[in-house]
Amino acid sequence: MAEVVNGVNLSTLSSEEELYKLLDATEDFDERKKVRNRLRQLQAELRVQRDEAMKKREEEREQMILQRKKDADEQKRRMLAMYDQMAKSSPAGGPKVMDVNIYKNAKPSQEQVLQAPPKRDLVEEAIQQRKWEAEERRRKMLAAYDAAARSGQPGPKSPDFNAINESTSAPVTPVVKKAPVDCTFGSILPKQTQNNQKLSAKAKFQQMDAVQNKHSPSRPNFQNRGGNVMRSASDIKDMLLHWCKSKTREYEKVDITNFSTSWNDGMAFCALIHHFYPDAFDFESLNPKNRRYNFDLAFRIAEEKADIAPLLDVEDMVLMKKPDWKCVFTYVQSFYRKLHDKD
Results as ranks from 00 to 15, higher is better:
M1D: 07
A2Y: 07
A2F: 05
A2R: 13
A2Q: 10
E3M: 12
V5M: 05
N9T: 05
L10Q: 03
S11N: 06
T12V: 07
L13M: 12
S15M: 04
E17V: 05
L19D: 01
L19A: 01
Y20H: 09
L22V: 04
L23V: 00
A25K: 12
E27R: 15
F29W: 08
D30F: 11
D30Y: 13
R32G: 06
K34T: 03
R36D: 13
R38K: 15
R40L: 01
L46C: 04
Q49L: 14
D51H: 14
R57T: 12
E58C: 03
M64K: 15
R68M: 12
K69N: 07
E74I: 10
K76H: 13
K76S: 13
L80G: 09
D84L: 07
D84K: 15
D84I: 03
A87H: 13
A87F: 08
P95Q: 08
M98Y: 13
V100S: 01
N101H: 04
Y103V: 03
K104R: 14
A106Q: 10
K107E: 10
V123T: 04
Q129I: 06
R130F: 03
A134D: 07
R137H: 10
R138N: 11
A143M: 10
Y145K: 15
A148Y: 08
K157L: 02
S158D: 08
S158K: 15
P159F: 03
D160S: 10
N162L: 08
I164Q: 09
S167A: 10
P171A: 01
K178C: 11
P180F: 06
T184V: 13
F185M: 05
I188R: 08
L189S: 12
L189V: 14
A201N: 04
A201W: 00
K202I: 11
K204H: 09
F205I: 14
Q207D: 03
A210C: 05
H215Q: 14
P220I: 05
N221G: 10
G227A: 04
A233D: 14
A233C: 08
S234G: 14
S234I: 08
I236K: 12
I236P: 02
K237T: 04
M239D: 15
M239F: 04
L240C: 02
L241N: 12
H242L: 08
C244L: 06
K247F: 03
E252C: 08
K253P: 01
T257R: 08
T257A: 11
F259D: 07
A268V: 01
H275L: 01
D282G: 05
D282L: 09
N287E: 11
P288A: 00
N290G: 00
R291C: 07
F295M: 00
D296H: 09
A298G: 07
F299D: 09
R300F: 07
I301K: 02
E304S: 13
L312D: 00
L312K: 02
V314R: 06
V318A: 00
L319I: 00
D324E: 02
C327M: 10
T330E: 11
Y331L: 04
V332A: 02
S334T: 08
F335L: 03
Y336D: 00
K338I: 03
L339G: 03
